[in-house]
Structure formats: C-alpha cells, structure tokens
C-alpha cells in the first residue's frame, strides 16, 4: 500500500514534461466543450427559475430572466400563497417542501446504505469465494438487471400492499434495500481485479472471511464503493415511479413526487416552468453538496486503492 502511494505521482510527473503541447491544447478544448455542454443547460435552468412564469413565453429566447423574481423559489419552499403563485402564472398547488426533503433523505440514505453494503457482501461471495454454483447464481442475479422495471412494478406494488406497507417508509424502501443487481455487478468487477496476494497472505495468518471482508476488501475497495454509493444515492434521489405508486400520501411523499406539482396539471396545459426549474435546482442541491463533500475523498482514495 505504501509503495503504491509513493509510486502513483510518478507517471503524472513524467507526463507533465511531455512536449506535445498541441495535443494537450486539443485535449483541453475537448474538455471545455464537454463542460460547456454539461453546464449551459443549467444556466438556462437558472435563468428560467429566476423568471416570472407568465412572462416566459413572450421572452422565449431572451438569455436573461424574463421579469426577474424569486417567486419560483418561494413557491418551491411553499412560501407563496396560491393567489400570488397564480398571479405569476405558477402552480397554485400546496407543497410541504421540508417534509418531502426529509422523506427523500431518509429514503435515499437507507436504500443506499443497505444496497451498497449487502451488495458488497454478495459481490465478495461472487468474486473472492469459491463455491459450487457460484457463477450460475451470479448469472441469475445478473439476470434481474434484464427484467423490465415496468414488468415488476405492479407485482411489487401488490406485494407491498399485501404486507400492508403501502404509504409507509418501510414499504418504500424494501425493494431497494437488499441489493441492486447493478451494485453487485459493479463491485464484483472491482473485486475481481483486486490482488489476491494480500488476501492470501491474510488467509495464511488464519484470518476469517468476515475479517478479510471488513479489514481488507472493504478498505481496499473504498474508492469504488464510495463511487457506487454516490451514484446509487443520486439514482435513489431521482427515483420517481416507485414512490409515486407506493407513497402517495403526504407524510411519506418524496421530493421528486412532491415537486411534480409544477408539471402540467391539466390536459394540454403548460408546466409552471419557473417553478419546475427552481425545484430542479433545489432538489439537486443536496446531491451536489454530497459530491462537493465526498468527491475529493473519492479522488484521493482512488489513488490509494493500490491494486497491486
């Protein structure tokens, strides 16, 4: 481990001395382009969120906010009366932002923690342990990734109903908390790549599998696990269909469903664009903060995850 840490900076240092400046400039240009494509739509989102909704259409292509207002953000936080909202062309529907936020945090955290941990355990069994039928069982698990989600939504809904867990956090969380096929697949691929030497050395010392898993595999895979956890969290945070089915009542409604009130409310109607865009920004904020907080860690730990 310590040798890897010492070795890692070397190639970067040698690369920096490379003479290919034109190539580097080209690479940077591509990178800037990719960043522009990623970011520009968000500027449009911000511009729209700061606009008065019923002034948007007549300023459809103005790059600045149409009749600047913070009304849309107030709407998202539920600080605007229906009358004020309607006067700005926004949705007059009631939302309880902080409650939805709390529900979203609980839902995403529990499912992420559970799914990543249990999937890591399973991935360990599928990659580092040798047992009869291992690959067959793994193929079956992998096969679940192939099942169209639409296909399982209704039976799962009925199952939750029969467990009498509709409109409860437990019912919301259950299908995700034990595993996701992607997480198992993802971690298994990383575990496969892990050096056997460290592990085998530990085996000789008489270490048990649980200890190997917790003390060697998990720390060594910190980077992929952190990456996976972040990606899973984002996925869960944006989950819409299942919470819509199972948690329709206010006390368990998550943010993505709650903020749906800014979409078109009547047939052939237009959405409350300002409200929807403000909601998009605000609902992305927690994930953004999470990334800002742990992103650096992910980068650093990747350097140290020293595989061989």
């Amino acid at each position: 481990m310590s040798t890897t840490a010492r070795r890692a900076p070397l190639p970067a240092a040698t690369r920096r001395r490379r003479p290919f400046n034109a190539r580097r400039a080209g690479a940077w240009a591509l990178l800037v382009l990719a960043i522009a494509v990623s970011v520009l739509p968000f500027l449009w989102v911000l511009r729209t969120a700061l606009s008065t909704n019923n002034a948007l259409a007549s300023n459809a292509t103005s790059l600045l906010p149409a009749e600047f207002t913070l009304g849309a953000f107030k709407r998202v936080f539920g600080l605007q009366s229906p009358a004020e909202a309607v006067a700005e062309g926004g949705s007059g529907a009631a939302i309880d932002f902080w409650l939805y936020l709390r529900n979203s945090i609980i839902f995403s955290s529990i499912t992420t923690a559970g799914a990543v941990f249990f999937s890591a355990m399973a991935a360990y069994a599928f990659s580092r342990l040798r047992w009869k039928g291992r690959n067959a069982v793994f193929s079956l698990f992998l096969g679940t990734m192939l099942v169209p989600p639409i296909f399982t939504a209704l039976p799962n809904f009925l199952l939750i109903k029969n467990l009498d867990l509709l409109n409860t956090m437990l019912g919301l969380v259950l299908p995700y908390v034990f595993m996701t096929p992607f997480a198992i697949f993802f971690l298994r691929q990383f575990f496969l790549n892990m050096s056997r030497e460290v592990e085998e050395a530990a085996m000789l010392d008489g270490a048990k599998h649980l200890r190997i898993f917790f003390q060697i595999v998990l720390p060594n895979a910190a980077a992929p696990i952190a990456t996976l956890a972040l990606l899973t969290f984002i996925g869960q945070w944006n989950e819409y269909f299942w919470p819509l089915l199972v948690a329709s009542q206010d006390d368990v409604r998550v943010l993505q469903v709650g903020l749906g009130v800014f979409k078109s409310q009547s047939p052939q109607g237009a959405p409350d664009w300002s409200g929807l865009m403000a909601a998009t920004l605000i609902s992305a904020l927690p994930v953004l903060i999470l990334f800002a907080a742990f992103g650096k860690k992910i980068v650093n730990s990747i350097g140290f995850s020293g595989i061989k």
Partner: peptide, 12 residues
C-alpha cells in the same frame, strides 16, 4: 383533498 397532476392522475 389530494391534488395530483393530470399526467400522473390516472395511473395513480
């Protein structure tokens, strides 16, 4: 009273 937008109304 629960208000639910047209897009999700019938499936829900």
């Amino acid at each position: 009273i629960t208000q639910r937008g047209w897009d999700d109304y019938w499936s829900t």
